Simulated scan of single mutants.
Amino acid sequence: MNQPLAYVHPGAKIAKNVVIEPFTTIHNNVEIGEGTWIGSNVTIMEGARIGKNCNIFPGAVISAVPQDLKFGGEDSLAIIGDNTTVRECVTVNRGTIASGVTKIGKNCLIMATAHIAHDCHIGDNVIIVNGVLLGGHVTVGDFAIIGGLSAVHQFINIGEHAMISGGSLLRKDVPPFTKAAKEPLSYVGINSVGLRRRGFSTEKIREIQDIYRILYQKNYNTTQALSIIEAEMEATPERDEIILFIRNSSRGVMKGYTGIY
Rank of each mutant, 00 (worst) to 15 (best):
M1R: 12
M1I: 09
L5T: 08
V8N: 10
P10E: 14
P10R: 15
A12I: 00
A12G: 03
A12M: 01
K13D: 13
A15M: 05
A15W: 00
A15R: 01
E21Y: 12
E21R: 14
P22F: 00
N28H: 15
N29Y: 09
E31R: 12
G33K: 04
I38Q: 04
G39N: 00
N41R: 13
G47Y: 08
I50E: 00
I56H: 00
I56A: 03
I56E: 01
F57N: 06
A60H: 02
I62T: 00
V65Y: 09
D68I: 06
K70Q: 13
L77Y: 15
A78V: 05
I80E: 02
T84V: 02
T85I: 12
V86S: 01
C89N: 15
N93G: 08
G95N: 08
T96Y: 06
V101M: 12
I104K: 00
G105Y: 02
N107Y: 05
M111D: 08
A114D: 05
D119I: 10
C120S: 10
C120K: 05
I122V: 04
G123P: 01
N125C: 09
V126L: 01
V129K: 10
V132G: 03
L133D: 07
L133P: 05
G135T: 08
G136R: 06
V138H: 07
D142W: 10
I146H: 09
S150R: 02
A151L: 08
A151C: 11
V152R: 09
I156F: 04
I156G: 10
I158A: 10
A162M: 06
S165C: 09
L169W: 11
K172A: 02
K172T: 00
V174L: 06
K179P: 11
A180D: 02
A181G: 10
A181R: 10
L185I: 14
S186E: 13
V193Y: 14
R197I: 13
R198T: 12
R198Q: 15
R198P: 14
I205F: 08
I205D: 09
R206M: 12
E207W: 08
Q209G: 11
Y212V: 07
Y216N: 12
K218G: 13
Y220I: 06
T223H: 14
L226P: 08
L226W: 02
L226H: 07
S227P: 09
I229L: 08
E234S: 11
E234I: 11
T236N: 08
I246L: 13
